[in-house]
């Protein structure tokens, strides 16, 4: 009986999918941007932004939950018409898909003891040890801009936070969004705070995340670009942003 219900549900989805004007691939596994709630629904900032953008261009949107690896193939095969999944605009991806302007550019920031008086300058960090995730853009940035600062190279962000609380490193340099959700807003993060400026240097961090479309969809791209500007201008973006983050995730 369950199986029949599932098949019926599947057929219904397919039928609706045919009727929807725009299918959007989303991930559902990247909190707090895109995640599953207890009811099994996809929620998150990417999802709220998707709904806001669809409302702005006056289109019905259907969310298609897609694994990260399958995102671009699904788009190219027509299983969805756009990817809204915090996908960074990279030269490699730009060869196969067309990106809108950025809609998100989460900065990287330093986290340290709130009362340590740390600053993000060469003097402020001299003699300190900073934890980064090995081989990430944050690692590149530290190696490039703070060549004299000793780095601790970690396999995962969780390990960075363990050593930050233990005091083995004086600061962490991480994605501000996940740093806030995974550490600062948890009991372990008590007494710690961001310090210094949000870092978005294009040389290291690229242009941010955009919406991926099939190449040649110029009309849709212009509409979405307009919609991104519109929700930035009318405050809708920040209204959504502030439900998840204390800092603006869009950047300049």
């Amino acid at each position: 009986m369950k199986t029949i219900a599932a098949i019926a549900a599947l057929l219904a989805t397919t039928a609706v999918a045919g009727a929807a004007e725009m299918k959007v691939c989303v991930e559902g596994a990247y909190p707090p941007m895109s995640m599953m709630n207890e009811k099994g629904e996809i929620v998150g900032m990417d999802i709220d932004l998707t709904n806001a953008l669809c409302a702005e261009i006056g289109t019905d949107c259907l969310l298609v939950k897609t694994d990260w690896d399958a995102m671009i193939p699904s788009l190219l095969e027509g299983k969805c018409d756009a990817i809204i999944a915090s996908m960074s605009i990279t030269p490699e991806r730009a060869q196969v898909v067309a990106f809108t302007q950025k809609y998100l550019q989460s900065p990287n920031m330093f986290i340290g003891k709130a009362d340590a008086g740390l600053t993000d300058t060469a003097e402020g960090l001299s003699g300190k040890r900073v934890g980064v995730q090995r081989g990430t853009i944050a690692h590149d940035f530290m190696a490039g801009e703070f060549a004299d600062v000793e780095l601790g190279l970690y396999g995962s962000e969780e390990d960075i936070y363990l050593d930050l609380t233990a005091g083995r490193i004086d600061a962490a340099f991480v994605d501000a969004g996940t740093g806030e959700i995974a550490f600062l807003s948890t009991p372990a993060g008590e007494g710690f705070a961001f310090f210094g400026a949000p870092h978005r240097e294009v040389k290291y961090f690229g242009e941010g995340a955009g919406i991926a479309l099939r190449p040649g969809e110029d009309e849709l791209r212009e509409k979405l670009n307009g919609a991104i500007k519109a929700i930035r201008a009318n405050g809708k973006y920040m209204e959504i942003n502030n439900q998840y983050f204390s800092t603006d995730q869009y950047g300049e």
Binding site: G131, Q133, R134, G135, H139, D140, G152, Y154, G155, D159
Partner: peptide
């Protein structure tokens, strides 16, 4: 390499990640 030391494997993983 798992406890943040840049040994030979650590260097290899840095290259891969980068």
């Amino acid at each position: 390499s798992i406890i943040t030391i840049q040994d030979i494997l650590g260097a290899g993983r840095t290259l891969n990640g980068k």
